[in-house]
Design a protein around this nucleic acid. Sequence first.
DNA 1: TTCCTCATGTAATCAGTTACATGATTAA
DNA 2: TTAATCATGTAACTGATTACATGAGGAA
Lengths: 182, 182
Amino acid sequence: MIKFILLGFLNYGQMTGYDLKQAIDNSTAHFWHAHHSQIYTTLRDMEKEGLVTSQFIKESGQPDRRVYTISEPGKQSLGSWLDQPMTEMSPIKEEFLVRIFFSGQRDPQKVISELLLQRELHQRQRAVYHSILHPIIEKNVEIMPGLAREAEFWHATLQMGIGYEEMYLEWITRTIEKIEGL
Amino acid sequence: MIKFILLGFLNYGQMTGYDLKQAIDNSTAHFWHAHHSQIYTTLRDMEKEGLVTSQFIKESGQPDRRVYTISEPGKQSLGSWLDQPMTEMSPIKEEFLVRIFFSGQRDPQKVISELLLQRELHQRQRAVYHSILHPIIEKNVEIMPGLAREAEFWHATLQMGIGYEEMYLEWITRTIEKIEGL
DNA sequence: TTCCTCATGTAATCAGTTACATGATTAA
DNA sequence: TTAATCATGTAACTGATTACATGAGGAA
């Protein structure tokens, strides 16, 4: 999966592993994240497979960089991945729900304070979407108007993020009320 | 993680690996699933750690079964895991959003048909929550009224599932409209 | 002088998936 | 006779996380 994210970004232009990490952190990380260690090793593997090529650039003063470029087979691999539709839903792994599921015998006050903590985190995440990610997309379109169409799709994923956080926050409110009513 | 799910169920009563698989499929699988292979190997590891004990029961006619029972250390492990609050949000891994994110250069009709396919799947999932999972909880409470309190928490996770699917379906509708408007 | 950013990697480990493997009973 | 359910396991592999490791430049 991370392979296709890397191909997706490299399809916009050549980048280093470091750049890719930044790009992911500012966008897809909110629905698919990766550690730098995974990014670097995956790029190596992809080069062996012929999906990307790299040039090592010696910098004087700054650290050396390895710049990756997508190849023709890489573009085809990305394209055919995108063209074969997903026939299943993504599985969900939500640890917090596991905790709630098994909280029947716990002190309700402890459960409520955990819910309040999660509320805090999800409010912060919603704010990140509004005040950080939204402006980043806008800025990208400003400096590269050719990406206007792409930006519509980036916004779509952002809207899901906001919708998710809003739903989550409403659920927290309802769940706190439910526990208080027990 | 799966360890605590197994402990959580075994805390309700002794079960086999097979029983646990069924229990998970009918409940937590919607926010944390596991394959039988992982369940069996994890139970073995847990026995080595002393969190559970097992008895092998030879059946005549039916297949033999290995029944697991939670131990005192197992109960403590579960309790202390539940008592240390989650200070982070669960990371999301949603492949479909990756596909949407990188769909800027794709044929809009193909993207829309993928969205329609996902709508189908999420509608089905919402129906599963209403027509299968809800009745299962109700039935459990009927046959074991002592689980009434637990059931409130099970319902809470179910409500999140329903909220999630509803949010997802609304997002799909909005996204289709957006793409049609391009 | 301490921390942050830039920049890249390896190694060890863990969690999770897929595939392989067996075999009886019961219902359609 | 075919498929589903009951029932348990091992092995290989992949994907992902955590830890280890280095080092320069610039800002506070």
